[in-house]
Amino acid sequence: MKKILFISAVSIFLFSCKNQKVTSIELNNVQLTAEGPYYEGPNSFQETILNTLKNNNINPESVEKIELTSAILILPDSIEDGLIQDFSLQLVSNTSEMKKVAFINPIPAGKKEIPLTIAQEQDGIDEIFSKEEFTALLDANFSKDFETNIQFKAKLKFNITTH
């Protein structure tokens, strides 16, 4: 009897695992923009991202979980060290809550490619992706006023678990 129960439990476990699939997708060219001039304090840059799941042949209804696994920000050359004190990256859509997914504070000096710290709690990202468009919002805290227009490029990687 115990043997039967054990085999049943293992079978159920393997069966449920077998049905899940994890797909890794990359958004390598997220252009976060805002019109200057920028003033000391928080300034926000954003881009609307369309049809991510559709473009990767993923049915939104099959999605169980989405996790941001990597976020790298590429600073333009016009940004000198110390101009920006910290970054926060949020995702939001019209029908879901805004979710802070990554940040960095302080920004390491001398680097143009900045890997952001990823949030441990990532509930709700699947809801953000479920609609055809969502917005990536980058908040940058400027240490002083800055006149030149800036565009940040971001490379985002997600793991999408589907059944």
Partner: peptide
């Protein structure tokens, strides 16, 4: 729009 000019120093 978030991109519009804002003068944060006036806060």
């Amino acid at each position: 729009k978030v991109e519009e000019e804002e003068d944060y120093s006036v806060y």
